[in-house]
Structure formats: C-alpha cells, structure tokens
Write a protein that binds this DNA or RNA. Structure first.
Lengths: 352, 352
DNA sequence: ACCTCCCATCGTTACGTATTAAGGACGGCA
DNA sequence: TGCCGTCCTTAATACGTAACGATGGGAGGT
C-alpha cells in the first residue's frame, strides 16, 4: 500500500495528456461545449485519466456551483427500526428506484446529531447541501428547520403534506381528504348512518385532513352533524369499554379510527371492544383511515385505505428534479389512496 | 420567492460584523485556535451569522479538508427489488445503523450506468470517490472493477469473502466453512452417515467455502468420502425424481443444499421429492447451507444456518473506519453463523 | 496572396473555506 | 519613555473544478 496518496486531479491528467486543465475539464464533464474538443484529444485525455485513476472531486464540483447528481433523503425519524420499517420501506423503495432511474445517487442522511437528536442543522451547518436537493420524510419534523431550509432556498420535497405558516413548500401527499370521504361514503352505502370518529389529539396536517374528509363525506352522504361523535384520544386516556357501550347505545354502528405510530388508537379500540364484549364487525364496524404501521400488533384484516407509498416516493423524486431544473415555485401533488375492504366492516343489521 | 438567491458566505457575515472572513471562519469552525477570538467579537460574528441565515458550505469545507463524513454503499445488484429485499435488507440495516452511530452519512450508489449495467467505473470515472470509503455488497461483482479500486488505494470493505488474485482485500464474511462443518456434525449426530451435497456450479468463494466445510465436517464425523455424493446442479439441468430415488436407494438419508439467488436448488429438490413421492423429513432430511433468500418460494421451515447479516453490515462499517484511520493493511473478519433447527431434518430411522 | 472565419485549445478567474504567517494594538515593566 | 510580550485580527494562499474570454492556426473564399 502506498499510503495516503493524494488522488490525481485534472491538473495531473492534463500534464500527462499534454493538454491544459481546462481541456480536461471539457472532456470530463462534457457540458455544452463538450463536443468542441477534437476526438483525438478526447481519447488522449480519457486514456490519461484512466491510467491515473482520476476521479472527479465532488466537493470541488459542487463548490463551483454545478450539480452533483446526488439527491438526499433525510428522515426525521430513523427509517430502519424494525417496528416501523414496513411502513417506511415502500417510500424508500420508491425514492431509491426513481433516483436510480434518473441516474442520480442517493445520499442517506442517517447520522443523528451529537445529542441523539435528528436535526438538519448540526452545529449551524446545513448538511443537506452536499446534495443537489433533498427528499424529506417523517412525521416528527422540526418546523424551524424547515423554515430555515426554505429561507435558504434549498430545493426539497416533503413526502406527506406539510404546512409552514407563511411559506409555500413542495410535497407529495396522499389524498387523505378524499380517501376519508370515500370511506364515509362506503360506510353509508352499507347502511351506517351514525358514526364515531376516533382521532388522535395532536394537531397535525394529516389529522386535519382526515377530519375534513370526514365532514365532507358526511355532507355527501347527507348525514347531519348530530348523528356523529368525534372523540379525541389523548395519549394516556385510553378508550374505555364504558364509552364504547355508550356509543353503541346511542345508535352508533361504525367507528372510523386514525392509525398512529404505535397503533395506539386501534389497539385501544380493540381492547375496549373485547372488554365490552362487542364483536367486530358484527356489533360495530371499524374502518382504519390509513395503513396500520405495525402489522403485527393486530392480526385483523382491517377495512382501511392504503397510501400509494412507493409511488409517493417516486413522484417526490420527480418533482424534486423538476424543482432543480425549473427552479420555479413550490408545487404540490396529491395521490389517490386505495380502499381495502377487509373484514372489520359489515352491513348494518336491519333494525327490527 | 426571491429566486436563486445566493446563500450568504463568510464574507457576507464578515462584512456585516465588521471583521475579516478569517475571523468568521475561526468563530464558526472553532478549531484549535477558536478560543483565541475575543468574546465580544465572537458574539458579534455569531449574531451577524444568525441574522443572515448563514450556513457553512459543506462542499467548500470538504474541498479544503479532505474528509466528507460520508460512507458509500455500493451494490452490484439492486438491493431493493422485492424478491431479494428480505435477503439484503439486514445488511443494509446494519450498515445504516453503524454509519449513523459513527455520525457518518450513507451514500447509496444506486444509479445504474447508462447501459443498465451496474459498474463502479462509469465513463472511466470512479464515482465511489465522493465518499470517504465504501462498503461493497452483492454476489455478481466485476473483478476488474475491484482490482482497479485496490490499485487506486480506495478504502473499501466487502460484505462476504472475496478473493482477487494477487491482491489482499478487506471483507467481513460469514464463516461458511465452520457452519457447514457444524451442519454435517449435527446430521451425523442424528444418525446420518450417507450424505448428498447439492451445490451450484459456478465457482465462487462461498461455494468453495461450503464444500471445504462439508469435507471438514465429514472428517470430523469420521465419514469416509465414499459415503457421500456431490452433485453439481447446472443452471438448466434440474434435479430429477429419478436421481433422487437413486440416492435414497444407495442409502443416502440426508441432503445438504446450497441456497441461490432464486432458490433454484431448493425448489428443484422439493419438486423432485414431490414427484418421487419422497417425504421431507421422514424419507430424507434436508439441510440448507445458508438463508433461503426468498421466503415465499417455499413455506417450509428449513433446517439451516443463518448469517449474522445485520452484524456483518455493522462490522463492515467498523472495519472501514479503521481502514480510514490507520490506512493500514487489509483486514478480514469472520463471523459465526447460527444453526436453526427447522422441520426438514429428522433422526435417521433405525434400519431394520 | 491576403483576409476572414471558425475551431480547438489555453490562460485566467471565481467559487467558499481553513490555515499559516504576519501585522497591529495594548498594557506592563524597567 | 521605550521595549517587549501577549492577544487579537488580518492578508494571503491553496484546495479542484467550470466557465469565460482570448489566442493561435488552419482552411476556405475572393
């Protein structure tokens, strides 16, 4: 081993090929003027480069302002932990696939900051900037980091709808509004007229969208507001068997429930049903408004809708590249979800 | 949107704070001389930086310094295709985890070359070099690319044992020899004395290692060579029911089989068994020498050994970082496999 | 033969940062 | 007051690349 040999530069190649550094640059990076170089010279340069084992220095290139052909993928939570991987994996798959298809490489910003905290700005440094642009992923984001990113004009696309007051950002989102509305329609078609909606408390975009979809679905189905019950599930206050019985007693026949990181709402509902001796779907229909992240937590084949996760990943990359080329305004894209009819919803029994 | 606003530099900060660019650099990056800056100046600089939304330009920094804090992961096959993902995923997991733990970022070289062919040297240029070092993964490598990498002194670690004549390279490998040997021992302990060994034909390191382990296990168990039958499974020539019957007729009670990309050998064996009316494990015991990549192709819980894939990924990163720091010689690491007792192996029936 | 034009190549500069050696202010001590 | 030493700050430079304008020479036209 020759030890830490400095890797050859364009100057070295130029010297060997008997041309100038500028010519080497023209040959290597092609550019618009790439065809202005004589074929013989081009060959000589390429040969010299191969012999020396020359490789382009990405740092220098991107310092100069050019592209790296690298896209970043930053996740606010670790993507890989086992319990969540089945949820995040399809996004990753789509992003990877599209990135490769466009002949870019993918930079995974996986390193947690020193504090164990995942932040974009570690020590005041925006690490993302080594990439040409970045796809962001994850539920628990730091808004201030996002705002900072926008302020810097760094091109990025979020997977999932994200709003930051005062700025317009790009994202690829699932159409939660439409999907939830459709779910209400489906339930109404099966005869359900009195619904309960079980939402998580924190006020996020996706929770708001689902609730909006819920209201919209009610309107479409012609169900007045007083026929429904909205219950916000605080983290600690689980749904009790008593509450569930109350609902059923008041004529409610179906429950819509939001999935969460830990499937807390679903698990709580199932436990309450078990305690109350209520059978799903015979006694109450349950529809899940999304993909339950943990497939293991519950064995049931829920009636639900699934996000086109892989496609979302792919589209995010496509939009990011559009952003890079046009450097136009932010753009948003909504993709349809697919309703999956499982065995947790049944027709409402004829009232005798 | 202000459009492509150039992001502020140290010069801008310096101008605003009324100091020189060098002072800004001292304040920002601290360094060894960081404490030589007067507290008042430091505050002024930090304030100016905050007001302007200054962030360090990573490209410029690494151009100057050398290290990128980026590790590469290059795979000779796409890691993500669905049919293989369960096999490769744990490696990826381990690599990602270790990379993050050491506060590096992970660069996924996913872009296929223009020809659809995955090569390290695209257009005579080594793309890997943007990273400080690289973990390599995959079965179907291009030896010439590897040799070139070594020649360039680029630090890399292979996951899986790889040999290139004349050069010594670093890898983290599963101890196929020991695991296969142990498997033979296990079979011998269950009374199996006549074995068949079904290998794939191409002459790879892992095939050789398994065969060596097979021989070693035979020696340990005191089984003479004429009690065994080694069958090389060509790609197209599947194992026939007739052959399988012949083996059993000759007293063979157990088959060791190598897993392949597509589980070809296992599937062939199972089909032959079905055709011949041979039951597994009642009539013949089957041990798989590794992890069957496709869990779906067969529902059986094979007796096998599994590679510590996640750990292999982690160790690969650790060794790579050692290589970076010491820039010493290549190093190799072997990790033990875990035997898994499934239901495809039974005690040999007492011969009446 | 001379002028023109174009093509291939070259010299130069800027990108933003970290570092080194050098400069300047200030106070203390003789 | 003069000298020196200690801090603090600065000017200059290098890193490797891409882009621009400039230059030289050869070919073609008049």
């Amino acid at each position: 081993m020759a030890g830490q040999r400095r890797s050859p530069t364009q100057v070295d190649v130029a010297r060997r090929a008997g041309v100038s550094q500028a010519t080497v640059s023209l040959v290597i990076s092609g550019g618009t003027l790439g065809n202005q170089v004589a074929e013989s010279t081009r060959q000589a340069v390429l040969e010299a480069a191969a012999e020396l084992g020359y490789t382009v220095n990405a740092a220098a290139r991107s310092l100069k302002g050019g592209r790296n052909r690298m896209l970043g993928l930053y996740t606010f939570e670790p993507v890989f932990p086992v319990n969540q991987r089945d949820f995040y994996f399809p996004f990753l798959l789509g992003v990877e696939e599209a990135t490769a298809a466009y002949e870019y490489d993918l930079l995974l910003f996986s390193s947690a900051g020193s504090g164990g905290d995942r932040r974009i700005y570690a020590g005041g440094v925006n690490r993302l900037k080594v990439a040409d642009g970045c796809v962001l992923l994850g539920r628990h984001l730091h808004r201030e980091d996002l705002a900072e990113l926008v302020k810097e004009d760094f091109p990025f696309v979020f997977v999932g709808r994200r709003e930051v007051p005062g700025v317009e950002l790009s994202y690829v989102a699932a159409d939660y509004v439409g999907a939830t509305s459709d779910m209400v329609t489906t339930l109404a078609r099966l005869g359900h007229r009195r619904l309960a909606y079980l939402k998580v408390t924190d006020d996020t975009e996706w929770t708001r969208d689902r609730e909006a979809g819920f209201r919209q679905g009610l309107a479409t189905a012609g169900i007045p507001d007083d026929q429904v019950r909205v219950f916000a599930l605080a983290e600690k206050a689980a749904l009790t068997a008593t509450q569930l019985r109350d609902w059923l007693a008041s004529g409610i026949t179906a429950v819509l429930v939001e999935p969460t990181d830990d499937d807390g709402a679903i698990v709580a509902l199932e436990r309450a049903a078990a305690e109350a001796g209520v059978r799903i779907p015979q006694d109450v229909s349950v529809a899940v408004l999304g993909d339950p992240p943990l497939q293991d937590a519950t064995r049931r084949d829920w009636t639900r809708f699934t996000l086109p996760r892989e496609q979302m990943g792919r589209e995010a990359v496509r939009i990011l590249l559009e952003l890079l080329d046009d450097n136009a305004n932010a753009r948003q894209l909504y993709l349809d979800c697919t309703q999956v009819l499982g065995d947790s919803v049944a027709e409402v029994p004829e009232q005798s």
